[in-house]
Simulated assay, not measured.
Amino acid sequence: MAKQSTLNKSIKEFIGPKHWPTWIGMGIAYLLSFLPWSALQGVGKVLGKVLYLVASRRRHICDVNFKICYPDMTKAERIKLTKEHFESQGQGLLETFASWFQNKNRFASKITFEGEEVIKDVLERGRGCILISGHFSPLDICGSQVPRILDVHPIYKLQRNPVLNWVMERQRKALFSKTIERRSMREVLKSLKQNKAVWYAVDQDYGRSDSVFAPFYGRECATIAHIARISKMTNAPVVLYDYGRTQTGYHLSFSEVIDFPTKDDVENATRMNSLMETAIEKKREQYFWGHRRFKTQVNKADPSPY
């Protein structure tokens, strides 16, 4: 089934028997969202351990990524990091449910911000700004807190499961003043013109046609090029949004990417990848290592490493 927005669709379209398993899952997710924060973390780790046992394909992708990014890492070290990654993903899954079904103010005491003055400074220029980040397991719960200091319009990807899409799109619409489907460049430009922040996660492989090749952990990697192009077109400053889970909550930081972009797409992509590497190394286990980051090869004839 093709991915389609469900924002203009009624729930009546998704109540047939074929959708019941997903609705049951959403009901369980709703109940789990009420867990206290410490229990949320503990249950999330247990869920991650289960996922590690059953998700053999994702384990394989993680191992391939570790071999590419950390060639000196031993097999035992890769297994250890993979287990830690799955535990973090389990925590992130429950945090996503909590961000969808609970009032965002419930987690306010768990959040620390750094770089609020950066946001104020860039928006005073009247060009909006482009937030760039990577994919880390607390993405949704940290993202739900950004509107406390910034009117941000996140770019999102449609899901194949229509029920999940229906819930996700509505919950995110309730959190953010506007969300933008990733193919809607017109809406991106409109938001920047209105001096809003547009948020991109820039560390996924979107395929050859939308990318340039730049090193990521020392290996040429398909990297989206249009971030720098949008910045050049609109004069919108680019801000690195880094976030992560701590022992006591979450830390969100904002820093302007200085002297960016340049006129060279590969140089810009290399800079973004370097920023992502720095962010990853602070919290390796929280990164989405289950993504096939290196699936598109420089040489079309070369097979995918996965």
Rank of each mutant, 00 (worst) to 15 (best):
K75E: 15
D140G: 00
A225P: 07
P305Y: 09
G27T: 10
Y287T: 06
D265A: 06
R186I: 04
K232M: 15
P154W: 06
Q89V: 15
M233K: 14
T179I: 15
Y287L: 11
K83V: 12
G126L: 02
Y156D: 03
S231Q: 05
Y70F: 15
V50C: 09
I79F: 04
F66K: 11
G249H: 03
E87H: 13
F101Q: 10
K157T: 09
I119G: 00
E285G: 06
Q297W: 02
M168L: 02
S99A: 15
Y287K: 08
A222S: 08
D265E: 13
R245P: 13
G249Q: 05
S211Q: 09
N161F: 12
I141S: 05
A2S: 11
I180P: 09
C62H: 10
M26Q: 10
N8E: 13
S88V: 06
L94I: 12
D121N: 04
K75Y: 00
R284A: 03
S99K: 02
G25V: 03
D205I: 11
I24A: 15
H291D: 04
Y241C: 15
L189H: 11
I24T: 11
S304Q: 10
P162I: 01
T223Y: 02
K83M: 13
K9D: 14
Q102A: 06
R183A: 09
V298E: 13
L53E: 07
S191H: 01
H226V: 14
I224F: 08
R208Q: 13
R59N: 15
I258E: 12
G42P: 02
K67H: 02
E220P: 12
L7S: 13
V122L: 03
V257Q: 10
R78A: 13
V122M: 00
F294H: 07
D205L: 12
L123G: 06
D210S: 09
I61W: 12
R127N: 05
A2E: 12
G25H: 14
V118G: 00
A269F: 08
Q286N: 11
I11E: 07
G244C: 01
G128Y: 01
V54A: 01
A98G: 11
V212Y: 07
S255P: 10
G44P: 01
I141Y: 03
S133P: 07
D210M: 12
F34Y: 14
W199Y: 09
P162Q: 08
G44Y: 03
P147I: 02
V122W: 00
A76Y: 05
T82A: 13
C221R: 13
L150N: 04
A76R: 02
Q297G: 07
V239T: 06
E116M: 15
Y156G: 06
G126Y: 10
V239G: 01
E87M: 14
C142E: 13
M26L: 03
S5C: 07
K110H: 11
E187P: 05
M1F: 07
A236I: 02
G90Q: 00
S33I: 12
W20P: 14
L275Y: 04
L7I: 04
W199E: 02
I61P: 12
L51S: 07
L94H: 07
G134L: 10
P71M: 12
A174H: 05
I111L: 10
G115N: 01
R127Q: 00
G290L: 15
S177L: 01
F216Q: 11
E256T: 07
I180L: 09
E87Y: 14
A29C: 14
V163G: 03
